[in-house]
């Protein structure tokens, strides 16, 4: 159980918030984040607040930095050589770039689902059990079985795979693989789940299933999803942030952004002038 103080942080200063800011607690809050890849300035002064237990979508044209920014939130950018992140990102009220912070703990609390399904070349069971095992969250086989089943159920995959848990995860269909990866992420009981275009490699039916799943997961988790598809953003998210050329142009409730954006660039993108 995590006892947390509801952050009282201010809204981003250089970003206009449109629509109602909401009454909820802020789960992730970024202030003036810059990211450099060697000489390249990939993210420029981004500040954003992500409300707890909701879905926030990051949209924008390709190369706008939305994935890069997403990867800052669980410090996956650390694994890229020559990548430097400045600014302040807080999970609840804890600075995640604090030298004392444990990356392993952070990544357990902030799970991630990738663009392409990437199940490990192990059995379905082992894929889901991997996280709880390494983090020492379970004691005994029964416990583990329970977590695996629970996670697969939450990922809406249980019914399809319960008879073949020993088969390799790579043998599943693309959509099932992606739901397996979601199950793998929720097996360690994260607070935030980052999804980097989770449906871009899936067919429409599989996409619909994953979107449904995201909507259900919103009850318990804070979800940040990067997506190319505005329809998807409109369908699954409550909040939307629009990125362009490394800058966060506009953020606010999804409804508001899609119907009444303040910024000309947002409007152009939404209406399909560029993309």
């Amino acid at each position: 159980m995590e006892q947390l103080v509801a952050p009282t942080s201010k809204m981003g200063v250089d970003v206009r918030h449109t629509g109602e800011a909401g009454t909820t607690e802020i789960k992730v809050s970024a202030q003036n984040v810059d990211v450099f890849y060697g000489e390249k300035h990939a993210i420029k002064g981004v500040s954003v607040n992500v409300p707890a237990r909701s879905v926030m979508a990051f949209i924008g044209p390709s190369g706008c930095g939305k994935s890069t920014f997403l990867r800052c939130i669980n410090r996956m950018n650390d694994t890229i050589e020559g990548c430097k992140v400045t600014g302040n990102i807080r999970l609840d009220d804890r600075d995640i770039y604090d030298a004392n912070l444990d990356v392993v703990e952070l990544r357990a609390r902030v799970g991630m689902v990738f663009q392409k399904p990437n199940p490990f070349p192990k059995s379905i069971f082992e894929n889901v059990a991997y996280g709880p095992r390494i983090h020492g969250l379970v004691h005994g086989k029964a416990d583990l079985d329970a977590i695996v089943e629970q996670s697969l159920r939450k990922a809406a995959l249980w019914e399809e795979v319960k008879d073949r848990l020993k088969e390799p995860g790579t043998g599943l269909s693309g959509g099932q693989q992606q739901r397996l990866c979601i199950a793998r992420a929720i097996a360690v009981n994260p607070e935030v789940i980052l999804m980097d275009e989770p449906c871009s490699a899936l067919d429409p039916i599989a996409t619909a299933r994953v979107e449904e799943l995201i909507d259900e997961l919103r009850q318990n988790y804070t979800i940040i999803i990067v997506t190319h598809s505005m329809q998807q953003a409109a369908r699954v998210s409550q909040q939307t942030a629009f990125f362009h050329l490394g800058i966060l142009v506009e953020t606010g409730s999804t409804e508001f952004i899609f119907t009444n954006p303040h910024d000309q660039r947002t409007q152009d993108y939404i209406t399909g002038r560029f993309g």
Partner: peptide
């Protein structure tokens, strides 16, 4: 594939765990 490595790191595995359990296995 890098994605497997990232997948393991993103769950919060240490580098040693990623090497031992995912990369070596693959």
């Amino acid at each position: 594939p890098r994605s497997l490595r990232d997948g393991s790191l993103a769950i919060g595995a240490t580098r040693a765990e990623t090497v031992r359990k995912v990369m070596l296995a693959a």
